[in-house]
Amino acid sequence: MAKDFYQAVKERRTFYGLSKESVLSDDRIQELVSEAVKHTPSSFNSQSSRVVVLLGEQHDKLWNLTKEELRKIVPAEQFASTEERINGFYNGYGTVLFFEDENVVKGLQEQFASYKDNFPIWSHHASGMLQLVVWTGLVNEGLGASLQHYNPLIDAAVQQEWDVPASWKLVAQMPFGNPTAVPGDKQFSPIEDRMKVFK
Results as ranks from 00 to 15, higher is better:
A172F: 13
A126D: 07
Y6G: 06
S19K: 04
H125K: 15
L55T: 02
M174Y: 06
N140D: 10
A76W: 12
D155F: 10
F188H: 15
S43L: 09
Q148P: 01
T136S: 10
N151F: 05
D101N: 11
F198L: 15
Q160M: 12
L97W: 05
M195L: 15
L24F: 03
A145P: 03
Q78F: 15
F112C: 15
V158K: 08
R71M: 14
M195D: 13
G142K: 08
P120L: 08
F176Y: 08
R194S: 15
L138C: 05
A36P: 00
S189P: 13
P175R: 05
E84A: 13
Q7R: 13
V33I: 11
S167F: 10
Q159I: 14
I29M: 00
I86N: 02
E192Q: 11
A36D: 00
F5D: 01
E31Y: 03
V134Q: 03
G107Q: 11
L32M: 00
V51E: 03
R12K: 00
N118M: 13
T136C: 03
V133E: 06
Q58A: 11
W63I: 08
D185I: 11
M1R: 08
K67N: 14
S46C: 01
L138F: 07
S49K: 03
L24C: 09
L55Y: 07
H149G: 04
E161A: 04
D155Q: 11
S49D: 08
K61T: 12
R71C: 10
A36L: 05
F44K: 05
V51G: 09
W122K: 03
V74T: 14
